[in-house]
Design a binder for these strands. Sequence first.
DNA 1: GCCAACGTTGGC
DNA 2: GCCAACGTTGGC
Length: 151
Amino acid sequence: MAKWLAKTEPSECSIDDFARHPDKPIVWEGVRNYQARNFLRDMKAGDEIFIYHSSCIHIGIAGVVKVVCEAYPDPAQFDQKSAYYDPKSPPGNPRWSAVDMVFVSKFANIITLDQLKAMPALASLSLVQKGSRLSVMPVSDGEWEAILTRI
DNA sequence: GCCAACGTTGGC
DNA sequence: GCCAACGTTGGC
């Protein structure tokens, strides 16, 4: 199973939103970057994802969720009332994708960005690189283990 | 709120 | 295809 990391602003969707209804999938919508979208399309049911809280008080990885279905057209791109509406997305060939995710676990303490930056094993992870804005990214098995064990 | 870094757009 | 202008991201 592949591993991933996805960023979210907790005011929009946090690990607590997943934990509140552990059996109810949340639609991961609104990705509007092609590289991130392509990673969404590579996801398979059962893949695990670190949930990273950005633009907030406690920045860092807050827990783990997992993918429950393959990518499908993001409904928000055709919803004129959505902030994620994209009038230029062709209905016959939807530009943007979404996947459904469910709760796996919440960390007792957030693994902070400072901690992540201090881990040698994560040096090549896009998340810790200066100026990186990629919101969905692959995580290698080695990186995953390093994060779980805080090495 | 600031601003550096980035991705996208659109004129040429 | 170039690249300036623009809007957005996201840490601080």
